[in-house]
Design a protein around this nucleic acid. Sequence first.
DNA 1: CTGTATCCATGATGATACTG
DNA 2: CAGTATCATCATGGATACAG
Lengths: 114, 114
Amino acid sequence: MSIKKEMPIAEKIKYIQDTLYVISGKWKLPILMSMYNGCKKFRDLERSVEGITTRMLSKELKELEANKLITRNVYDTYPITVEYTVTPYSYSLKPMVDEMIQWGIQHRKKVVGK
Amino acid sequence: MSIKKEMPIAEKIKYIQDTLYVISGKWKLPILMSMYNGCKKFRDLERSVEGITTRMLSKELKELEANKLITRNVYDTYPITVEYTVTPYSYSLKPMVDEMIQWGIQHRKKVVGK
DNA sequence: CTGTATCCATGATGATACTG
DNA sequence: CAGTATCATCATGGATACAG
């Protein structure tokens, strides 16, 4: 028989907020999705992520990198090119993101009633 | 053989943002967790959700109710008492929230290295 | 091309006082 | 008890110009 201690609520909340923080911001998930779709260069992301500014793209990319979801590689061409790539680790987000998509779909039906 | 059309990225992002919006804000999940833990009355929530103000509690409860995650019941005592209860529907969030907790746990290890 | 630096607008939250 | 009203503060993001 296994004795399983329930995690205290406060601790659960802490982890949830950690997680939310990592994917928070208007652009992090759109950027990631674009990258899964093949975009690698700064300029390509700037164009494919509808409406984003260079300031926000730069900022969000840094945070994604800090959280090990993407890596940044600089190539010494002229002008320099920079390639961002999603890490294998970033795929660990997939189950959660898929859940969010599914929940969003059914919730829209539930609340809007359509 | 099944032909399955991939959902366009833009649409996925829309649903993800819908979902994030529902649980957004500093207090919605802490409130919900407190309610799962048994809190029902405004004053109890105000005390159990560490740091929340009446203004925010009131506001977030309204939004949770609008999204059908809780219901509000007024009892005509004196002074009146109000009981909030989580809806069965709110439990549909559980898989996602559990995923967030698990992801948060392993992410802290991954990034902090501990 | 790949960003950084400023400044500004808006929204989200906090503090506090007050009401039925 | 269960909130509302008002004002203050802070974080987020947008616009724009500029740099290496």
